[in-house]
């Protein structure tokens, strides 16, 4: 099977898979609730169905506790995967990902700064956290790009090294902040490894607009992203405004990343693993790669969250631990493949 039908089937399959992991994720927990009830509760809230045979406690657990959290997980997963596709496409670097590039750590520092100092709270109100996170993300990305840009453009390995250096610096800043405010230990720890234990409807509302605007914006530029794969010069000769495209997409991806980080902390490797898998399965055309990666990113993070909640229940693992367990071997694999290709 070739071309369009194959991609549509992948899209449909992934969507069904997302619905399934979504319901599985809501039904899992200290009180087990079966999947049918999950959809009955959602149906009742939307005014479909009459809600007969639903236990009131179950309804509260689902609607107030689990649903916002699970939605948040899915949103963040989709956002991180999209950001990964964009970073890899624009930087032409197979190892790029918001976490590895240090963008997530920059956003974390921004977010922690906003919380600890409550600067800007008067002016920006509820937006001060994402705004600070975005500023941190942009600062980190600018630093990484400045460090990595050599005479011959962006080298794959030096970009990763710069990412590591910048990330260590921002992690040190976080620890520094931690030593001033030991009472914030719990919360700062949370930023370092990521987590959704604080997820509620407000946060879903805060992140959703970023996906709603960010995804179509990236998707509209998918033809430009495809051409960038030919190399910057070739893209320019085909009529792409390379500088504008690069700045636009990097800003959008960083903004989406910082929105995700602001609610969930640093979660690594989703943006690395998903674009690679989807590219292998369905090809590198960004018009299909972006939506399919968004779906797959949501699925992967939902599964990781299920594991994080159940492995050492009733306690909970930081979700970043799970994604790192999956992502680090994957990273090693891609690095090796890249070295073989370049004969390094």
């Amino acid at each position: 099977m070739k071309g369009r039908p194959k991609k549509l089937i992948w899209g449909g399959g992934l969507f069904l898979c997302l619905l399934f992991t979504f319901s599985l994720s809501v039904s899992l927990g200290s009180t087990h609730i079966d999947m049918m009830t999950v959809w009955k509760v959602i149906g009742e809230k939307w005014g479909v169905g009459n809600g007969s045979g639903i236990n009131a406690t179950d309804a509260v657990i689902i609607w107030q506790l689990r649903l916002p959290r699970v939605l948040l997980v899915a949103l963040v997963g989709a956002i991180l995967a999209i950001a990964g596709v964009v970073y890899q496409g624009i930087l032409q670097n197979p190892l790029a990902d918001p976490y590895i590039l240090g963008v997530s750590s920059g956003a974390s520092v921004g977010a922690v700064l906003a919380i600890v100092t409550s600067w800007g709270a008067a002016l920006l109100g509820g937006w001060s956290l994402p705004a600070f996170a975005f500023a941190g993300a942009c600062l980190a990305l600018a630093l990484v790009l400045m460090l990595a840009r050599g005479r011959s453009g962006l080298n794959v390995i030096s970009l990763i090294l710069s990412g590591v250096v910048v990330q260590s610096f921002f992690a040190a800043l976080l620890t520094f902040a931690l030593s001033f405010k030991p009472e914030e230990m719990q919360r700062i720890q949370f930023w370092l490894m990521g987590g959704f234990s604080l997820g509620d409807w407000n946060q879903v509302g805060a992140v959703f607009p970023f996906l709603l605007i960010g995804f179509p914006a990236c998707w509209l530029m998918s033809a430009d992203l495809n051409l960038m794969a030919l190399g910057e010069r070739a893209a320019a000769h085909l009529g792409v405004n390379v500088a504008k495209t690069r700045v636009c997409l990097l800003l959008i991806a960083s903004m989406m990343t910082s929105a995700a980080v602001a609610v969930s902390g640093m979660i690594g490797f989703v943006g690395l693993v998903i674009p690679h898998i989807m590219r292998m399965l369905t090809g590198a055309d960004h018009r299909s790669l972006l939506p399919l990666s968004a779906l797959a990113g949501a699925i992967l993070l939902l599964l990781a969250d299920c594991l994080a909640r159940t492995l050492i229940a009733p306690a909970e693992l930081p979700i970043g631990v799970i994604t790192s367990f999956v992502g680090v071997p994957f990273f090693a694999l891609i690095l090796k493949r890249h070295q073989r290709k370049k004969g390094e």
């Binding site: 495809n226 794969a229 030919l230 190399g231 010069r233 070739a234 590219r279 292998m280 090809g283 590198a284 055309d285 290709k341």
Partner: peptide, 8 residues
């Protein structure tokens, strides 16, 4: 520069 090994 020749076309690289891109996945298209």
């Amino acid at each position: 520069e020749p076309l690289g090994e891109i996945e298209f």
